[in-house]
Simulated assay, not measured.
Amino acid sequence: MPDHDVVRRSYDTVADDYTARLHDELAGKPLDRALLASLLEQTEPGAPIADLGCGPGHVAAWLAERGASTVGIDLSPAMVETGRSRFPKVEFRQGDLLELPGADREFGSLVALYSIIHLAPGELPHAFAEAARVLRPTGLALFAFHVGEETRHLDEWWGHEVDLDFRFLQPARIAGLLEEAGFTVEMSMERAHYAGEVDTRRAYLLARRGGS
């Protein structure tokens, strides 16, 4: 099992650089914006949207700018503090994907963009069960991740010492685990990397929580 403290410390270390470099990344990601807009359109009016593994909160802020009530949740306290100072429209909470700081059925929808890639394979079912727990019946969840079987390790990132594993995932396996957690996968798609992104293939799954 991974040491989540190691992941937390690594993201604390790069929080300032991460924010400076990626705070406006959605400007160059038209497909991501379209998927987020679709999620927002289908979210129960007035229901908050959770951004799991939100980093500095730029995705939650993009949704908030379009009228959503958003809650950013991240393992890294430095990311949370950076987000609070930069995006006052977003509520931030520190927390782990395996023990989300949210009430049962609190959120109308949720997004988890490249956050499940730091979990061990055996932790994914627990993470998806937690996502289902905090999501309202028939609420939507949008997941994004790198496609493949490999694990890439970083011990240096933007000149900072880190200790991070990035696990690539197979869409069919993730879809199966989501189904086991009570979701119905409504959309699965892939794209090539955009200019300026790491050269990986990206997958998106849109899944709806069961109604019970």
Rank of each mutant, 00 (worst) to 15 (best):
P2R: 15
D3K: 09
D3Y: 14
H4W: 13
H4S: 14
D5K: 15
V7A: 14
R8S: 07
R9P: 02
R9W: 01
D12I: 08
D12G: 04
T13P: 06
T13F: 03
A15R: 06
Y18F: 15
Y18R: 03
R21W: 05
L22Y: 15
H23K: 14
D24K: 11
L26D: 13
G28C: 05
P30I: 04
P30K: 11
L31M: 10
L35K: 04
S38D: 15
L39V: 11
L39T: 11
L40A: 15
E41L: 13
E41A: 14
Q42M: 15
E44V: 08
E44W: 02
E44H: 06
E44N: 01
A47V: 04
A47F: 02
I49S: 02
A50E: 06
D51M: 13
L52C: 10
L52T: 09
L52A: 10
L52K: 06
C54V: 07
C54S: 15
G57A: 13
G57W: 09
G57F: 09
A60I: 03
A60N: 07
A60Y: 06
E65Q: 14
R66W: 12
A68D: 08
S69K: 08
T70D: 07
D74I: 11
L75K: 10
P77T: 09
M79G: 01
M79N: 04
V80H: 03
E81L: 08
T82I: 05
G83N: 09
S85I: 00
R93P: 03
R93C: 13
L97N: 04
L100G: 00
L100N: 07
P101H: 15
R105V: 02
E106T: 02
F107T: 11
L110V: 06
V111H: 08
V111A: 14
L113P: 00
Y114M: 04
Y114G: 04
I116W: 03
I117Y: 00
H118N: 12
A120C: 12
A120S: 14
E123W: 09
P125I: 08
P125F: 05
A127N: 08
F128D: 04
A129P: 02
E130A: 14
A132Y: 00
R133V: 11
V134M: 14
V134W: 07
V134F: 10
L135K: 07
R136W: 00
R136L: 05
G139A: 10
A141E: 05
L142H: 10
L142Q: 08
F143C: 03
H146Y: 01
G148F: 02
G148T: 01
E150F: 00
T151M: 08
T151K: 08
H153P: 02
H153D: 05
L154Y: 15
W157F: 11
W158E: 12
H160T: 02
E161R: 12
D165S: 15
D165C: 05
R167N: 10
Q170E: 15
P171I: 00
P171S: 03
P171D: 06
A172G: 01
A172Y: 02
A172D: 15
A172F: 01
L177E: 13
E179K: 10
F183N: 08
F183L: 04
V185G: 07
E186F: 05
M187Y: 14
M187H: 15
M187T: 12
S188D: 08
M189I: 01
E190P: 02
E190K: 01
A192W: 00
H193V: 02
A195G: 07
A203C: 12
A203S: 09
Y204T: 03
L206S: 08
A207R: 05
R208I: 11
G210I: 05
S212R: 14
